[in-house]
Simulated assay, not measured.
Amino acid sequence: MGLHLRVPPAGRFLIRPFGRGSRSGARLESLQWEIDAAEASLAAAVRSATEAGVEAKALMLETGLTSIELLELQLR
């Protein structure tokens, strides 16, 4: 992070305030937001299915979740 200096062919210094690291960090944060939103959506769907009477075994088969993971989602 920080400032990065590079020397262009003409010999002048250019200051680059953001390097690849900060772009990667921003992308990582964006992906984390997407993952969080997807998990919240899945948790809502699991709760809704449970309230509608769908059995835990059926939810586990359809979602690929373990019983512990399913319970954790239901408690969110």
Rank of each mutant, 00 (worst) to 15 (best):
L31Y: 14
A37M: 01
A58T: 14
S30R: 02
R20V: 08
T50K: 09
A26L: 09
G25C: 00
I35Q: 05
A26Y: 08
G53C: 03
R27W: 02
A26R: 09
A45Y: 01
G25V: 01
A38R: 07
L3I: 07
E39F: 03
S48G: 03
S22H: 06
Q32W: 05
G19K: 00
S30L: 04
L42E: 12
S67C: 10
E51S: 08
S22T: 05
S24K: 07
M60Q: 15
A38V: 04
R16T: 11
A37F: 02
P17H: 02
V7E: 15
R16Y: 14
R76F: 07
L75G: 07
L65Y: 14
A10M: 02
R6M: 04
G2C: 08
A38C: 03
I68Y: 13
A52H: 14
I15T: 14
S67V: 10
E34K: 03
P8K: 15
S24N: 08
E29H: 05
F13Y: 11
A26K: 06
F13N: 11
E69F: 14
S30G: 13
E69A: 15
K57T: 10
A43F: 09
A58G: 09
A45G: 00
E69Q: 15
R12K: 14
L75A: 14
G2T: 02
L28M: 06
G25H: 02
G25N: 01
G19P: 02
A45K: 06
A58S: 12
R12M: 10
I68D: 14
R23G: 04
R6A: 04
P9H: 13
L75D: 12
Q32S: 09
L61N: 14
W33A: 12
R76V: 02
R23L: 04
A38Y: 03
E39I: 01
A37S: 06
V7T: 10
P17Y: 00
H4P: 04
A56M: 13
V54T: 06
S48W: 08
A26H: 12
W33T: 09
E51Y: 12
G25K: 00
P9C: 06
G21S: 03
P9Q: 12
S30H: 10
D36Q: 03
F18V: 12
R23Y: 06
L59M: 11
T50W: 09
R16L: 13
A56T: 11
L61M: 10
V54P: 02
M60A: 15
L71I: 08
W33F: 13
L61V: 10
L42Q: 13
T50S: 10
S24W: 12
E51D: 08
S30V: 00
P9F: 12
V7Y: 13
L3D: 14
A49F: 06
E55M: 13
A26M: 08
R6F: 13
I15E: 05
E51H: 12
S30W: 12
F13K: 10
L73W: 11
L5D: 02
D36T: 04
S22F: 05
L61I: 07
A40P: 01
L59A: 03
V54S: 00
L3H: 15
S67P: 03
A10N: 11
P17S: 03
L61E: 11
L71Q: 15
S22M: 11
G2N: 00
